[in-house]
């Protein structure tokens, strides 16, 4: 039986690692849940942002938060441009999967052309800093990531619930024709939401640059687990996405600490299947 320290530490790192799943899931969940568009290029956009953060940081010595401040607005516009294409070609849910998959592949190739296929690592002095709390260590960067993800998820949740635009978006997601007949211009709102999704990808990307390994193929590394998170967290529910991310992160980590690390990838899907079988009301 593993010691309490080990379990506690595994839980902490798992929950914090899950913050990244949640952050990546956020934008995906919004566009899937509210626009009925499955945006596979979300991961590619996040990695593009990560590479830009890396480039700005290593070549021009721009601090990551300044890099984010530059990249996020650009990504917002990219999201809007992307939606313009969806709109123009009247893309539906299934077609969006195929089209955004192609987007992602094109971005992957572009990234590989510019940054090569080689691994890139953005070394910063705070990348391995941590806070000691009793016998446990809390990595600073992951903690910051979780706080940012928390603020974004909470803020987006409130926005969807409390503002006119948010409610109109949810109404249009449920029945776009009826909402339109009540004056909801969901096309305009969809542009806004697509921009937001891409901006969230950019924020996730900045953290990916700081925390993870950059390689073009890594774009696909997060796909499975983040999809599980989006579904468990309920489509279009930002808080659900974050909590599901942390749940999966924690389960993976505990599985690695108690059983075999190699089981980790199985965990997210086991949790997904278990929850789908259980079929709770909130799903």
């Amino acid at each position: 039986m593993p010691s309490a320290t080990l379990l506690g530490q595994a839980l902490i790192s798992g929950v914090l690692a899950g913050g990244m799943y949640g952050l990546l899931a956020l934008g995906l969940s919004l566009s899937w849940g509210l626009l009925r568009l499955v945006n596979l290029s979300h991961f590619a956009l996040a990695f593009l942002a990560a590479y830009l953060t890396y480039e700005l940081g290593t070549t021009y010595h721009v601090a990551p938060w300044w890099a984010a401040a530059m990249i996020v607005p650009v990504m917002f516009l990219i999201g809007i441009a992307q939606h313009w294409l969806f709109d123009k070609f009247k893309v539906n849910e299934l077609a969006s999967l195929l089209i955004t998959f192609s987007f992602a592949v094109i971005l992957e190739v572009a990234i590989q052309l510019y940054w090569t296929a080689d691994y890139r690592r953005f070394e910063t002095h705070y990348s391995t800093m941590s806070i000691k709390a009793g016998p446990f260590y809390i990595p600073v960067l992951e903690l910051a990531l979780c706080m940012v993800a928390g603020v974004l998820a909470w803020g987006t949740w409130l926005w969807l619930r409390k503002t006119y635009v948010g409610k109109a978006l949810r109404a249009a997601a449920e029945d776009a024709d009826i909402a339109a007949a009540y004056g909801v211009d969901h096309k305009k709102l969809a542009y806004l939401l697509s921009g937001m999704g891409a901006a969230y990808a950019a924020i996730a990307g900045t953290f990916i640059a700081l925390i993870a390994t950059l390689a073009p193929t890594q774009i696909w590394a997060w796909l499975g687990v983040v999809f599980a998170v989006v579904i468990i967290g309920r489509l279009g529910n930002p808080l659900g996405a974050l909590l599901a991310g942390m749940l999966i992160g924690a389960s993976e980590s505990i599985a690695m600490a108690v059983f075999e690390p190699a089981w980790a990838p199985v965990v997210s899907f086991s949790v997904l299947i278990a929850i789908l079988l259980w079929d709770p009301e909130w799903l």
Binding site: P2, S3, T5, L6, Q9, A10, I12, S13, G14, L16, A17, P139, A212, A221, W222, V225, G249, E252, S253, I254, M256, A257, E260, P261, A262, A264, P265
Partner: peptide, 20 residues
């Protein structure tokens, strides 16, 4: 003796076991 899956994302829990 630990084996992890190729493409493992988070090494936090493995690190905790190595440390222990």
């Amino acid at each position: 003796y630990l084996e992890y899956e190729a493409g493992n994302r988070d090494f936090g829990a493995i690190a905790a076991r190595v440390k222990e």
